[in-house]
Design a protein around this nucleic acid. Structure first.
Lengths: 151, 151
DNA sequence: TTCCTTGCAAACGATTTGCATTGGA
DNA sequence: TCCAATGCAAATCGTTTGCAAGGAA
């Protein structure tokens, strides 16, 4: 997310939290800022590092829980089972993940809207056939990143 | 997986393990059988239950690790971060997952091969654009299952 | 004052591992 | 015989929580 977008997201978050009567404290702001700078979902440990240890892990987890509850961010789990957090889709935009099977890096990747429409339609049909009502989808692309391919 | 397919998978597993000089012990067979009967990936706790506690959890985890190492099964993590295991794609066939966001159930779902081809091509292109070489993909469809919609 | 937030330390739960025992080739 | 597999108990590690102190409204 570029600086302009990040600033915009910042404002959206402030508004969303205000509506939910949730305070936008320094720790929460630090987390939102770090996540808007990230190229993909981050683990609590990553965030802790990037914040220079200014937010202790237990507080960090609590902060993350509050922001998740407020739907400002989402949580998922990487191949190792470690939780990774990123800004919610309404802030970051719909996207998918490139996962390097060598180093484990997870990177956001956008997809052409026309193609997304195709995927969404397909997903809805597959779900309906199985008696589900589709609400969303997640597409992870496993592969090898350029760095790991070179090394 | 129907009984005929399960029997076939059973044989494939036996062969694969033999080639790798890995024994097909009773515990390993029980796990493979339970997984071929499952409608989706199971957590270690689920397996432990389905096996009537005959395989202690620590042994079960070791069994799962051996079978994963032998590429007989794969591990992933559900929304709660708990590991779930299922037979590898070369045994089960390529498929995707329907995830009920209410009860958390994960169910396998196959997709029309023509559509799979489309997805695979799209995935390869998206990956290439980002400097990745695509090796596979994973599509999870989030929704509400019929049971949870009715309740 | 009255909540909400914080930080430390202790608790938790899923998963892993050390070690002594068992069992198959 | 010998190495792999097992089962129990203890350890590990990411994550959560109890509790007392600090801060904002």
């Amino acid at each position: 997310m570029n600086p302009g977008q990040a600033e915009h997201a910042e404002h959206e978050v402030r508004t969303a939290l205000a509506q939910r009567r949730v305070r936008y404290t320094p720790a929460r702001r630090l987390v939102v800022e770090a996540l808007s700078r990230a190229a993909g979902p981050l683990a609590a440990g990553d965030l802790h590092e990037r914040l220079g240890g200014r937010v202790p892990l237990s507080s960090l987890y609590r902060t993350l829980a509050v922001l998740e509850e407020a739907q400002v961010l989402t949580r998922e789990h990487d191949a190792a089972g470690v939780a990774r957090y990123e800004l919610a889709e309404w802030l970051l935009g719909h996207h998918h993940h490139l996962v390097c099977s060598v180093c484990g890096e997870v990177r956001d990747v956008g997809v052409d809207p026309a193609v997304e429409t195709t995927i969404t339609r397909l997903v809805a049909r597959v779900a309906a056939d199985a008696g589900y009502r589709a609400a969303g989808h997640r597409l992870d692309i496993e592969g090898t990143c350029a760095a790991c391919r070179t090394a």
